[in-house]
Design a protein around this nucleic acid. Sequence first.
DNA 1: ACCCGTCATCAAACCGGTTTACACTTGACG
DNA 2: CGTCAAGTGTAAACCGGTTTGATGACGGGT
Lengths: 336, 336
Amino acid sequence: MSRTTIADVAREAGVTKATVSHALSGNRPISDDTRAKVLAAAERLNWVPSQRGRALATQRANAVAVVLARDPEVIANDSFFPAFIAGVESVLAETETALILQVVPDRAAEERAYRSLANGRADGALLLDLRTDDWRVPLLEELGIPTVLVGAYEQPTRFSCVRTDDAAPIREIVQHLRDAGHERIAHVSGPLDYVHSRARADAYTDAVGGADLLREGDFSAASGRARTAELLDLPDRPTAILYANDTMAIAGLSYARSQGLRIPRDLAISGFDDDHLSAHLSPALTSVSSGPAARGRAAARLLQADIAGEQPMTEVVDCNVVHFRESTAREKSTAR
Amino acid sequence: MSRTTIADVAREAGVTKATVSHALSGNRPISDDTRAKVLAAAERLNWVPSQRGRALATQRANAVAVVLARDPEVIANDSFFPAFIAGVESVLAETETALILQVVPDRAAEERAYRSLANGRADGALLLDLRTDDWRVPLLEELGIPTVLVGAYEQPTRFSCVRTDDAAPIREIVQHLRDAGHERIAHVSGPLDYVHSRARADAYTDAVGGADLLREGDFSAASGRARTAELLDLPDRPTAILYANDTMAIAGLSYARSQGLRIPRDLAISGFDDDHLSAHLSPALTSVSSGPAARGRAAARLLQADIAGEQPMTEVVDCNVVHFRESTAREKSTAR
DNA sequence: ACCCGTCATCAAACCGGTTTACACTTGACG
DNA sequence: CGTCAAGTGTAAACCGGTTTGATGACGGGT
């Protein structure tokens, strides 16, 4: 509880509020012994400047925001998000910037949240789960609040962007599967109006030369299971499935097994985002570690730059690394 | 951007700032037609009161904080946290309260974080990962900021508490295993200076009548594997292991299998916290869903009550439910 | 007709900082 | 010796709300 204010410190040091302020901020030259007096007084009174007063005077909240419009359940399923946040924090901590996290149930609430944030709560925002032609982008442009888009965004925008090359790891996995003799390779994507789902799906289509075996999921275990069932019911069923996240992959794997298929001998499986459990399953799940922490750090840096008034820019963080594990291994007995 | 201030609205409506304030807050009686004029003016100017000005005047930040002192990696491993946060948010959203999330690397940073939060950034804090005799409790008491402890805390404190009965599900699992014929039941706990780890370990010791087969892990997959190896190396190895979280359970399961053991026939396994993947593994993992969202909601409510000046209280949220799955199933062939 | 109480509004102070315009010293230089 | 610039500190305004004491209008009671 900071009952002591800058005025108390000023009195204690025998100077005025302005001098105290300048002594601490260094915005104006202050003689060394005055500064010493001020610091001593502040120390003696155990004074810490109030965030509230400062925020009002400087028009800065010293906070940035992330708004998530997702089901609580989906949040709990996401291995990307927590690590991403940790990356963001590691950068924000350096400048005493706080992170405001808001989880909202629907679009109306989300819009209210952004308006409220822009209204003095936060200095900037991080946009996740971008959709093609996302309504939030123009809203935030209108609100005039610095923003960083996490993910490739195709529309023109003046905001900074953190991109990754999701196509490369997908090509790599497809190639790996081809080398192992697979010819019918399927893909269970995320919702295709998410830009990253779309990008991955496009990369897949490119790599295999068609979208016959592309099925749209929604990142949930249930959809992983359902889409897998559809694919396995095909007359000429795929011999490999590439999922857009590990949750769907594991649900799919589990279903395939329940149908008597052996993994990877009868069906090779790959996930995406490398959930922390994936390496420990049996069979261990091939997945793509998408460097969430690195992306979080990059996003936070770009946001701070934007807030500081620098030019927005796009940064490509290349941190995707494919972990080939047992679920896509070429079985000795069936090597061809 | 809210360039328009309350003064603009006042001018537009032909009244003073005070009237505008009262018209919106209802702190003073205002005639109906004046109120209408004010609301119309506010609407016309598209005015939203500034959080900053309001915060300074009311001495309220309209925000609460959660500080996490954990490895980014550990955060990503935790299935409890994201759902807990979602629960917290669902309550905070009702009152336009923001959630400030801070991830800090070490104790010094954590202490700074709390001091800064108490200094006008937040109105209250949620304390997770409680340790026996946690240094943060006296610190927050000294700072005089309303706080809710999530987890059983044994020391006397004036803060509210959200507790759960972790002993019950553990007893239930042990009983279930006993019924299936298991006599050597081991437990791989979390770090024993966490109060919830300790509580679970004590419940286990109570239920099996001894701590011979208790091993302390740290919630990481690596430790799950290591402690499992130790247990399986015993001359008289356990036939069932109860882990304090799913990450360790799955790492342990995976290791046991690599040693040629069949699950659950040779070794029954149970996790805790019910990771979203656990139901989809094969064998599906028995685990305890600890109702993270419900606990988050309870914690948020208690915190809001405390901030509003109500008496602190302890609430027991009973939301533990054991999901018995294949990993502890009694195998037909070995039924006794 | 006078007094008083109620109700609605206003004007000003306040929250706790930052910032700007200005005043006062000093020292250097022409 | 007068003047100007640099260097320090002060006083007051400001950020955008909320809250309180004062003011004025109106109606009822006697």
